[in-house]
């Protein structure tokens, strides 16, 4: 259906259209309104659900919502306790937020690729990308926040001098200081970059394949999109899980004094 609409632009035009964000502003001060909007809505959904569960939380027999929320909380808590041995009020809620938010972002990928752009075009919105995790800004925003926390906790736990020493004198000792520094800096910066790019890459590729499938004749589409969607359920959960676990692991590394 969409293929006919964009027939004039051809397949390339269709793909590019689907991968273009709704933007305002110029240069760096451009805002991707769709990313901001959908991630905020999904964050609101997450908060709403958990807030409802938390308000009704009892130590007695839990309701359905509380049960589900507690299941997630226990799951996250177990992951955090497995890899993080310190004591922190922030890390477990942070991990829960990351897991749920990223999962919801990724979940948007399972909606048919044309449905939201169609609704958008009916409302007069030309471009609409509904999956926030296919926007580098979203994934980097999260990974840079995590990176800031890593640096913050490294300095807080080890002290500025301790952290500097770790950067300079490990792993090869004080005589190879420049190499140590280089290695450590690469190691530290690789963390947020790999976090953001892994999530972005997986979801972007997944979205792209959905778009490519949508270009095929309608009678072939279900044969391909159905298995891919099922496979994608695994991917979106896995990516959310990986992002959460790695965040916890990085933060626990920041807490450990060598």
């Amino acid at each position: 259906m969409a293929t006919e609409v964009h027939a004039a632009e051809g397949a390339t035009g269709y793909i590019i259209h689907h991968l273009t964000s709704l933007q305002v502003g110029e240069g760096f001060w451009t805002l991707h309104l769709d990313t901001l909007f959908f991630s905020a809505v999904l964050g609101g959904l997450f908060i709403w659900f958990f807030k409802t569960a938390a308000e009704k939380a009892t130590a007695g027999v839990p309701g359905l919502a509380q049960n589900f929320a507690e299941m997630l909380i226990e799951f996250v808590d177990k992951q955090v306790k497995d890899s993080f041995h310190g004591h922190s009020k922030l890390i477990a809620p942070l991990a829960l937020t990351i897991f749920c938010w990223v999962f919801l972002w990724n979940f948007m990928d399972l909606f048919p690729v044309d449905i939201f752009p169609l609704i958008g075009s009916l409302m007069g919105i030309e471009y609409l990308r509904v999956v926030p995790s296919t926007d580098l800004n979203a994934t980097f925003a999260m990974s840079i926040s995590v990176f800031c926390l890593i640096i913050f906790y490294s300095i807080k736990i080890k002290g500025p001098w301790g952290f500097a020493k770790e950067l300079m004198f490990q792993p090869f000792g004080p005589w190879l200081l420049p190499f140590n520094l280089l290695l450590k800096l690469v190691e530290e910066f690789a963390k947020p970059i790999s976090l953001a790019l892994r999530l972005f890459g997986n979801l972007y590729a997944g979205e792209l394949i959905f778009i490519l499938i949508a270009l095929l004749p309608w009678y072939i589409q279900p044969v391909l999109s159905f298995p891919w969607a099922i496979f994608h359920i695994l991917i979106i959960t896995l990516q959310a899980f990986i992002f959460m676990v790695l965040t916890v692991v990085y933060l626990s590394m920041a807490h450990e004094d060598h």
Partner: peptide, 22 residues
């Protein structure tokens, strides 16, 4: 682009809210 900053703010708010009330 600046979306990054907006997303970071949203993220910070979400984490804060989760930490405080959820």
């Amino acid at each position: 682009n600046a979306t990054l900053i907006g997303q970071m703010i949203t993220f910070a708010l979400l984490v804060w809210f989760t930490m405080k009330y959820i």
